[in-house]
């Protein structure tokens, strides 16, 4: 074998274990559930192999699934907007701060390292019937008995925002930090006000970071089922909860496959649109 041929083969030898793992543990399983979604769960509990459209028919036409899907998207949109409103100014503050930037960023990223389930349940300590807020309000005499603030859609969104905000801050920070600050000075010297300089120079330049952060918040938020289980009420199920119900509780795996694929297509479309217009590079900058 020539030296060139060996040189050309080497990277593939290094890549093969990882590519094999992703192929066998992700791509083949995804294809497999496409097939599985056309099988049928019979009354006896066995899966009937074949080509049945029943699961898809149920998943796509039943108003129950449609409503929960729409509600899931609504929750994800609100979460993303709140993350942007809270995260953008914070990232701006860190990026333009005269102080210790890495420390400020590290501080805001620390919760990112703290366990998701701990952070989610920590809100029970704050908003629960005997939580910090009720205790404070009682002590101040504003209320006479504890109010139930937990287990509704608002607390689900609150939990999601607390979970996802670091993703937004990091992505916006990365793109703000890469903007030459003399551009703003130039705009100012040409007669623009601070606000104009921000809205016409800095904000447009930081949009890729805002878009990357928003995509992450939306996709991760729309795919969660733990937060509604911990902070939501009985009627606050999100779409991933339906998947969990079908697979783990009802053991209806063909239907669960169809529901999973629905979620994948809806969120995948979004990722693809993003990739088409903005590319994956920005997203990786924020993750790496």
């Amino acid at each position: 074998m020539s030296v060139e041929a060996r040189e050309a083969r080497q990277p593939w030898i290094l890549l093969s274990p990882a590519l094999t793992a992703v192929g066998l543990l992700l791509f083949v399983p995804l294809l497999f559930i496409v097939v599985y979604s056309f099988w049928l769960r019979t009354a006896s509990g066995a899966d009937q192999v074949g080509f049945y459209l029943d699961n898809w028919n149920e998943a796509l036409t039943d108003a129950f699934y449609r409503d929960i899907l729409l509600n899931t998207l609504k929750i994800a949109v609100i979460t993303t907007i709140v993350c942007a409103l809270m995260g953008y100014p914070s990232a701006y503050f860190i990026a333009r701060s005269k102080g210790n930037k890495p420390l400020l960023l590290l501080l805001l990223m620390l919760p990112f390292w703290i366990s998701y389930i701990i952070r989610t349940m920590s809100w029970i300590n704050i908003l629960g019937v005997s939580g910090a807020l009720n205790t404070l309000l009682l002590w101040l005499g504003i209320i006479d008995e504890p109010i139930q603030m937990l287990y509704n859609e608002t607390t689900v969104i609150l939990g999601l925002v607390h979970y996802l905000l670091p993703f937004m801050v990091l992505n916006v920070f990365v793109s703000l930090d890469g903007i030459d600050t003399t551009l703003e000075d130039a705009a100012n010297s040409l007669g623009a006000t601070r606000w104009q300089a921000f809205t016409q120079v800095t904000l447009p330049l930081s949009l890729p970071g805002l878009a990357a952060g928003s995509l992450l918040c939306f996709v991760l938020g729309a795919g969660t089922y733990i937060t509604p289980l911990v902070l939501g009420g009985p009627t606050d199920a999100m779409f991933a909860n339906l998947v969990f119900e079908a697979i783990i509780t009802q053991l209806n795996w063909p239907l669960g496959s169809a529901l999973s694929l629905m979620l994948l297509v809806v969120l995948g479309l979004l990722v693809m649109i993003y990739n088409r217009y903005l590319g994956m590079a920005q997203l990786m900058k924020g993750l790496g």
Binding site: L15, A18, L19, V22, L25, L26, F27, V28, P29, L30, F32, I33, Y36, V219, A222, G223, Y225, A240, V243, F244, I247, W253, G256, S257, S260, L261, L263, L264, L267, G268, V271, M280, M284, L287
Partner: peptide, 27 residues
């Protein structure tokens, strides 16, 4: 394309990844 393939596991919602892997390996 190789990089996109390798990071695909985080582009797919984790619930979907979990279902696909469970059902396939069970098969």
């Amino acid at each position: 394309a190789v990089t996109t393939m390798l990071i695909a596991p985080i582009l797919v919602p984790e619930v979907v990844l979990a279902v696909a892997l469970l059902l396939f390996l069970n098969f």
